[in-house]
């Protein structure tokens, strides 16, 4: 009898992963992630004690989930848990999956750099006893903006830029004519950059004299033609401190021969 029970116990134990492997599995193939900045790269998570902290929300194959950590309090140990989002919201008190409920210390760091080695990696540093341990979780499908240099391709930065796994989440695309990056006269971003969602390319218009360039729209490039936007000439080359580059005869844009630059009612330089 005892032998049977031992075999059964061994069978069950062997068919389960460690919490570390399970956490790596749950996070390494996510498609989107939002980290709570207050808890990332901030050292051991202790305060407030005995409180659930939402460390990150993420998406994997169109399913949204959240990662929570309950800070330790007196003899109560820290708890790491994953919860599925319901109606777009996550609650730490929902039924979820507890990875480990025995942390004396826990913190997370996000390692990202332009170096190929060890980048786009989530690092969990924890202790359940006396020893401090580290667990690396590679975020294989996560991309982040990159500072491009000579010979670079157009892809964003990621752990291995041209390889990912699984299905990609559905992406909402922007139609032609939509603003995908908007700046105002104070050079503030009124529409955050989302030109990576344009279906048929991006064109930049000449409007304000901003270091980040002019506003950008989705659509094919017809610049320079009659009744179309002027083709931008650049901002530094003009060496001007004028707030707006949009005025009649502005040298900030190119037009076809016989046409001249004018400013339209939306403060965009066009060719007429």
């Amino acid at each position: 009898m005892i032998q049977v029970l031992l075999i059964l116990f061994t069978f069950i134990s062997c068919n389960q992963e460690s919490w570390e492997t399970s956490l790596q599995y749950d996070l390494s193939s996510i498609n989107k992630v939002n980290f709570a900045k207050n808890y990332l790269n901030k050292g051991d998570l202790k305060n407030p004690p005995n409180t659930w902290l939402k460390l990150a929300t993420f998406e994997r194959v169109n399913k949204k989930k959240c990662l929570f950590y309950k800070t330790p309090y007196r003899e109560k140990k820290g708890v790491l848990k994953i919860v599925e989002s319901l109606a777009g919201k996550c609650s730490a008190f929902s039924k979820g999956r507890v990875y480990n409920d025995n942390f004396s210390a826990f913190r997370i760091n996000y390692v990202s750099s332009t170096h190929a080695e060890k980048s786009n990696i989530l690092e969990a540093i924890y202790s359940t006893g006396k020893e401090q341990l580290a667990l690396d979780i590679p975020l294989i499908n996560i991309t982040s903006p990159k500072k491009y240099e000579r010979y670079d391709n157009q892809l964003d930065f990621s752990l291995v830029p041209d390889v990912s796994f699984g299905e990609e989440s559905n992406q909402l695309l922007l139609e032609n004519g939509k603003v995908c990056h908007g700046v105002n006269s104070e050079c503030q971003e009124v529409v955050g950059y989302k030109c990576d969602k344009c279906q048929n390319g991006v064109v930049e218009v000449v409007d304000y004299n901003c270091p980040q360039g002019g506003s950008k729209y989705c659509g094919p490039n017809k610049c320079g033609k009659k009744n179309q936007i002027a083709c931008p000439r650049g901002y530094k080359i003009l060496n001007t401190k004028l707030n707006s580059l949009c005025f009649e005869g502005s040298p900030a844009g190119f037009c076809e021969p016989g046409l001249r630059t004018y400013c339209n009612e939306k403060n965009i330089l066009i060719c007429l």
Binding site: Y148, E149, R150, Y151, D152, N153, Q154, L155, P161, D162, V163, S164, F165, G166, E167, E168
Partner: peptide, 13 residues
């Protein structure tokens, strides 16, 4: 395993 390979060779900055 669904392997996704992106074309990283065609365009240059």
């Amino acid at each position: 395993l669904k392997l996704r390979l992106k074309d990283s060779c065609r365009e240059v900055f």
